[in-house]
Every structure is written in structure tokens, then in C-alpha cells.
């Protein structure tokens, strides 16, 4: 017989903090996307030319 999976119920504070972390990750990813977009526009075709 399959065992019942153990579940954890988060407290309201844990839920609130998890939501804050998720928003921060989303914002960071958004900034990264915008940054790549702007740099691509700035570099134009030179985006593939990277000095060592």
C-alpha cells in the first residue's frame, strides 16, 4: 500500500516571505531581460565581438 506523502503546512508568515522571495526573483529576471535587450541594441552587430 502506498504511503501517504508527508505534507507541510506553511504558516502565514512563511507564505508571506515566500511570496516576497518570488517577487524578488521575478524582478531580478525582468531586469536581466531588459539589460540583455538594451545591451543588444547598443552593441548592434558588434554584440558578438567581445575583446579578450
Amino acid at each position: 500500500m502506498a504511503r501517504e506523502p508527508e505534507r507541510v503546512t506553511l504558516t502565514p508568515e512563511q507564505l508571506r516571505r515566500r511570496r516576497a522571495r518570488s517577487i524578488a526573483i521575478a524582478l531580478a529576471l525582468g531586469v536581466l531581460v531588459i539589460l540583455f535587450y538594451i545591451v543588444t541594441l547598443i552593441k548592434g552587430p558588434g554584440v558578438l565581438n567581445r575583446p579578450i
Binding site: V8, L10, E13, Q14, R17, R18, A20, R21, A24
Partner: peptide, 10 residues
């Protein structure tokens, strides 16, 4: 342990 970390902690 279940994380209770806020953004400020990171």
C-alpha cells in the same frame, strides 16, 4: 528546516 528567509536576509 522550512525557509523563513525574507528578501533582506538574502
Amino acid at each position: 528546516l522550512i525557509s523563513e528567509a525574507g528578501v533582506g536576509d538574502y
